[in-house]
């Protein structure tokens, strides 16, 4: 069993001949994604600045691209793709569940505290 690698990414759309080749392929992909993020961050296109689900559309794009990068780092650089499903789920599901829970609670609470300041229960002294 030692060191077999699954060599296809993008759900089998792109197949590599060797593990080394796959690593370079993933690097190119991650570099492109980072470049897109930086360009969007510098130019901030007006069309993406509208509010979507309580946040700027652009910020959602950043978060999604980050998750995409995180996926390929974990799956291909850390070889999560080659681990057994049970190990993968133990690690990924646990982390994803707890992190979502934490983020929800803290952001909800932060928004509430903002409202308390804004609606005038407490005034910020200038």
């Amino acid at each position: 069993m030692a060191h077999e690698h699954k060599l296809a990414i993008f759900r089998g759309l792109l197949k590599f001949k060797s593990n080394t080749q796959k690593i370079w392929g993933v690097l190119i992909f991650l570099t492109i994604v980072t470049a897109i993020e930086v360009l969007l961050g510098i130019y901030k296109p007006e069309s993406l600045m509208s509010q979507v689900l309580g946040m700027k559309g652009l910020n959602w794009i950043f978060i999604i691209l980050t998750l995409v990068k995180a996926y390929y780092i974990t799956w291909d650089f850390m070889h999560m793709r080659d681990e057994t499903p049970a190990l993968r789920r133990m690690v990924v599901w646990t982390a994803v569940f707890l992190i979502c829970y934490l983020i929800f609670i803290l952001l909800q609470e932060g928004g509430y505290v903002f409202d308390v300041y804004k609606e005038g229960f407490i005034k910020r002294d200038f």
Partner: peptide
Amino acid sequence: ALTFSGFLAAYGFSRFKFI
């Protein structure tokens, strides 16, 4: 990862507080 998420979520909390 949970430690770092704790920090980043706390950052998010403070940011939402002074959004």
